[in-house]
Design a protein around this nucleic acid. Structure first.
Lengths: 367, 367
DNA sequence: CTGAAAGCGCTTACAG
DNA sequence: CTGAAAGCGCTTACAG
């Protein structure tokens, strides 16, 4: 029968403690604790005693009491994850992969959505930073874009073991980001290889440093292939004043005005004569494909399209989307590794603070 | 500078304790603790003293030490969530919404992915059940389909405060599920309203009780509208032997053979003369739309299509997908509520153990 | 109402 | 190597 517990407190089931193990193994609590809960390789306990203790612990199904360790000052083996919304198309992969990597080093992940929950108060980000402190998380992954509210300085002050994903937000702080320059080079190179010469770039913004990297990669690869840069082939979403994606405050779901992509088609294809478009992300790409079909422009025959993200969506566009895979798994692995280094050893060497993840191109049908 | 901590232990920052508050407020620790950390409404402390204590606590920024409370037997204010993979199109919403609801009652959510991480051992589910015990979670949400491995009995034994989503897995245990019968009725009703008469149903399985409910709703609504049941209009994926969706063990991503939908089109549209299809989920629906276009069947002119889930995908199919929204937010709210009741009061009345969430139809373009 | 004491399960000096 | 003691920050009887 479910839940016949007391009110706010949970009756401690009879649980085996370090004393039980010590008694049964015929050693002191000190020795038992040392063998079981401290790092291995200590000189002070004989190997045969250690073995015996471990056996007893196994038989008794002993597990160190987490709360007691924590109270005593040990680490919590818990990471906090700050995301705008965990259901977000990109973050959901990141959350999954980060958890998978965390578990490998014995850590669990505590979720923290920073938007869409006004009941918490005016600023969920700051609230969660405090909560994570109270829970004594060992480290924090912050994957919240910098344009969302939240005191990043307070975050890193309270949680020195913080790592950022994509938007570093605090200059010089450890950050793992996709190599966007490389991503754009992969895309352009592929298109050139398919005979495209009028390659357009459509991005949400060029004022944000992250997005600017895309332009750099785009330009470099054009140059490398002897193609001239034509400003008419670059679409900067900022100039249109349209908000291309925003999170609905009440549903906490992302919304996207598909029709807004018509402006991209007008500028790049109709006016600029583009025969290919490298899109801001898979959603832009999917919308471009959809709207171009409506205008009789076929993909990839007339215009090739390349996305960025490799969301589930990519298989379902028609034609299926050729896109840049962001390799979240690699990013997650790297972040956990860095976090563990920070926890164990203190400073990360300057050179290892900003890590670029090499994305890869997934070729489907749209380019 | 990031991370200049000690090895495996974290130096306790100077933190304010209940003793500090008590001293400053001129009361005993007992009183301070009683006012601050116990439920309100105790008769033994005068209101003016209580007020003063609260003021001091606020000024000192006192927060009860979580580990100490836990060690003392208080609840952890943590929920564990078991999902096959948190990045899964459906689960990702659920994780987000469940966290949002949990935070409202002062709880945090610990993620647990039960597949895709073989390094953990042969059975991640059982491993996580143990881990959740060690972390002393107050309750568990299990949103893992019953055909995945994992000892459900051990789960509910170790965590009496467990609630299932969709697949109850343990008979009679509290469970929140979408009212699939109602979902199908909404879909059929809508199609009939649009003049469809040969309405097909395409589902992955009819042997699983959950899926059988769909057929029931489908039949009832046909009957209600005076339409005869035609077995040729029902596609049961099981009969084809195809695996329509599976999680890649190494990438932990869901894969779906889009071409497999051709069999559905053959049976329902070509042979059965269907003018509408209610699809197993949005992914089936999206694939049907895509493959039908390839065969010159246009949606919704020739055949209407309705999905199930209301994933991001729904906006991006061409035409945009009319689909059933599963109302995850409502489900999450209900689950947290039930969990809290179980924690606080013990048994849930029989009648409140199985909750059906009423889905809604989102009309876009495909039907 | 109040306050000193014991104890949750550990670790960490400390003295043998 | 060993063992008794103190203490992490709380709550819970218990005696005033």
């Amino acid at each position: 029968m479910p839940g016949n517990h007391g009110r706010a407190s949970v009756p401690a089931k009879k649980v085996v403690t370090i004393s039980d193990v010590a008694r049964k193994a015929g050693v002191s609590r000190w020795v038992a604790g040392h063998v079981l809960n401290q790092g291995a390789g200590n000189s002070r306990v004989g190997p045969e005693a250690a073995e015996r203790i471990r056996e007893v612990a196994l038989k008794l199904n002993y597990h160190a009491n987490h709360a007691a360790m924590l109270l005593r000052g040990k680490r919590s083996y818990t990471f906090g994850v700050l995301v705008a919304s965990a259901g977000d198309p990109l973050r959901s992969f990141l959350v999954q992969d980060f958890d998978a990597e965390a578990i490998k080093v014995g850590c669990h992940v505590m979720i923290g959505n920073t938007i869409g929950n006004p009941t918490i108060g005016p600023n969920q980000f700051d609230f969660l930073v405090e909560e994570f402190s109270r829970r004594r998380v060992d480290g924090v992954l912050c994957a919240v874009h910098r344009w969302f509210e939240g005191d990043r300085l307070a975050l890193v002050e309270q949680h020195p073991n913080t790592i950022f994903y994509e938007d570093s937000a605090v200059s010089g702080w450890p950050c793992v980001a996709v190599d966007r320059e490389h991503a754009m080079r992969l895309a352009v190179r592929h298109l050139v290889g398919r005979g495209r010469r009028r390659i357009g770039l459509a991005v949400m913004s060029l004022s944000r440093p992250n997005h600017l990297e895309r332009r750099t990669g785009y330009e470099k690869e054009l140059q490398q292939n002897g193609l001239a840069l034509d400003e008419r082939l670059i679409f900067n979403g900022e100039s249109t004043g349209t908000i291309f994606a925003q999170c609905n405050e009440t549903t906490a779901r992302w919304e996207f005005p598909i029709e807004a992509m018509d402006a991209v088609i007008d500028r790049l294809v109709r006016d600029g004569g583009a025969d290919a478009i490298v899109a801001h992300n898979d959603f832009w790409a999917a919308a471009l494909i959809k709207r171009m079909r409506g205008r009789g422009i076929s993909v990839p025959q007339h215009v090739s399209v390349i996305g960025y993200l490799n969301h589930y969506l990519a298989d379902w566009t028609d034609p299926a989307l050729t896109t840049i895979d962001l390799c979240h798994e690699a990013a997650a692995g790297r972040m956990v590794e860095m976090l563990e280094n920070m926890i164990a050893g203190g400073h990360l060497p300057e050179a290892e603070r900003v890590v670029k993840i090499q994305p890869r191109l997934i070729v489907r049908e749209s380019a």
